[in-house]
Design a protein around this nucleic acid. Structure first.
Lengths: 239, 239
DNA sequence: AATGTGTGTGTCACTTTGACGCAAAGATAA
DNA sequence: TTATCTTTGCGTCAAAGTGACACACACATT
């Protein structure tokens, strides 16, 4: 009987030769009234000098990948309730000039105003509008593209968008958000009908003021109701 | 200016201390007329003696994760056109008794009849019906559950199912497949209408014979048309 | 008082979905 | 030969959802 070497069956020792470095890379999407942006950092590493890259770091021995992601995300933010999703692992042996580094990509999505960048130490850190991004260092352009695709899919079925709105928002602000992120146009009346049928918006009985046109009504999102419906599994959230 | 240590910005050397072992684990789903099964192997590793585990292996220095998956899948099969999907990375520092092993989980889905198991050397390898699986070694039960969830989602929007049918199949065989995998009941007439509206089945103008009831018509799947429609991006595949 | 600008609303035609019953085809048993 | 069994194949109806589309209103500005 041929002994099939397999890490899940027989005892094997883990040799150093087969160990590799693991990193996490985060596509940090940000939203503000200017649109959708991604947080990028200057990369000084040959041969990618002058290019920008995603934020990431090596995973330490005693932490999970998620721990590492939280570390990367929290280094420059005061956010505690961080949202992130795993996208994919990238493992081309030549993807990193320092040697073999397998990276797991994640994306996050935050309100730009909640993200405090300490200018003095982070001159090289910048929010770049998604449509202005050209080539990136490493395979980060690929990672970005696949993450963005993943985000667009996710956002239609999960209320991520609402966490990025101000506490009180108008329906037009919300629609702009979806149009910007999804890069599509939506019909105003149909959008409103859809949102109405979800029945997850709270009409605050307030209106905008100081706008030079008919003021819009303000709403907030009913997170409580959303969570309740999700728990009992009765929610068809789709925008 | 505080230098932010970051693998994507400044040169750092990759120390051995931060390197870890990486493995891939494959949830190999199989389908035959008895239903949906998973290929499992006996695990002799303390403390999991007597339990079963997924198939997996360590990732070698010069291969991608996908290479490793193909290696694991092809060890016991003659299949060449392997389908697999990445599910998620599992990185709990204590998930493996041999030491730290980060694993990336994949699932595959094949026709059981296409999978040749060499009995003599693989007595410990077995197809287990999905509903008969109890606890597994390591965190493999969790991996299985999340993979199965992922598969159920995928299968409604991708024609994976058709590759698991015999070349010629009846609509009832196809419906059974979806009912088995999704673990739901479907209305026969509505199912047929749906399939018909997709317009991807070829009516072979043949019927079953030697069945003790009205013989069903035989169909095959129009992979050519499917691929053509996918390329031009005009296909709303949903079952 | 007129203008500009974004807000708020309803309808119609079309498609999709879920629920549902009955006759036909072949094999088998009486 | 006939009756019975089992599975196939088909159509309709009501309900819900989708996409397209136009006009009056409210506020600020001039």
């Amino acid at each position: 009987m041929t002994k099939v070497k397999n890490i899940n069956t027989w005892l094997t020792h883990l040799t150093n030769e087969s160990k590799t470095s693991i990193s996490v890379d985060c596509v940090i999407f940000g939203y503000d009234d200017e649109g959708l942006k991604v947080l990028l950092i200057d990369c000084n590493m040959p041969p990618y000098e002058g290019k920008k890259s995603l934020l990431g770091d090596l995973v330490q021995q005693n932490e999970t990948l998620e721990d590492a992601v939280i570390r990367v995300l929290q280094r420059r933010t005061t956010l505690t309730d961080l949202y992130f999703e795993e996208v994919k692992a990238y493992s081309d042996p030549n993807r990193h000039p320092l040697g073999r580094v397998v990276t797991i990509a994640y994306y996050s999505f935050i309100k730009i105003s909640d993200y405090k960048i300490h200018d003095s130490e982070d001159k090289h850190l910048e929010w770049i509008p998604i449509n202005d991004i050209d080539k990136l260092a490493f395979d980060h352009r690929l990672i970005l593209d696949e993450s963005y695709k993943s985000l667009r899919k996710k956002i239609r079925n999960h209320p991520i968008g609402f966490t990025l709105m101000p506490e009180k928002f108008t329906l037009m602000q919300l629609q702009n958000f979806y149009e910007t992120v999804l890069q599509i146009k939506m019909d105003r009346r149909n959008f409103r009908r859809k949102l109405n049928s979800l029945d997850l918006l709270i009409d605050l009985n307030e209106i905008q003021n100081n706008v030079s046109h008919r003021p819009a009504k303000l709403y907030s999102f009913d997170f409580k109701k959303y969570n309740r419906l999700m728990e009992i599994g009765v929610l068809d959230f789709a925008i």
